[in-house]
Design a protein around this nucleic acid. Sequence first.
DNA 1: CCGTATAGTCTACATTGTAATCCTTTAGTC
DNA 2: GACTAAAGGATTACAATGTAGACTATACGG
Lengths: 108, 108
Amino acid sequence: MPRAYLGEFEQMVLLSILRMGEAAYGLEVRQELEHTTDRKVSRGGFYTTLDRMEAKGYLTWVAEVPVNSRREARQRRFSVTPEGLLALKTSRRALTMLWDGLEPVLED
Amino acid sequence: MPRAYLGEFEQMVLLSILRMGEAAYGLEVRQELEHTTDRKVSRGGFYTTLDRMEAKGYLTWVAEVPVNSRREARQRRFSVTPEGLLALKTSRRALTMLWDGLEPVLED
DNA sequence: CCGTATAGTCTACATTGTAATCCTTTAGTC
DNA sequence: GACTAAAGGATTACAATGTAGACTATACGG
């Protein structure tokens, strides 16, 4: 049974997909995440999390259609599902509520 | 070895302590969390998380000093440490960065 | 005393987070 | 056309975090 809220890393991965626009390709998403949060992300952990979120219905992916080169054949392109988006909104709303009024203390 | 970022629940618990003001007492914090996030929180899970965060240095607590009644003797009053506050800021900054620009999609 | 409520503790297990290692396919290159 | 490297993923294994349920101890009304 999945949790009510997205895990901390799940949330960040899902947001990174959104940031790359739809049909974001795996390692680009990972780079985006690393740059935006200044955090190292291992490939293994990254794909593990993606697969788990697929199982929960928060994202889907398609294999890249080969164009010029066969090189691309194994690339996966990810998209957030409506359920995933809803989960993101729910997590965001909860945090926003909790942060509300604490700006003086939390602001950096 | 603890993680770089606060877990999703850890973050919410820590924020709830801040919201109650310093030296917040256990079950009040729990109530605050339940009300603000509209989520059920079991006592066991709640205290487990508090104890783990104490071990990581994100919070401290003192036993309530008995005043009129001995009734209060076992109450614990929690405070967020500077390290805890820093962790909250770090998590908040990362999420803020990731959300930035996605408001049209994430807004409820 | 006895029953009940309060405040917390302990135990156990499920879910998530993380890294290290392995596997395939393609691109040279000689 | 076999050999090597690198790109992109998949597997495996384990640590950390999330969660609930049952258990304890203290105080209070009667």
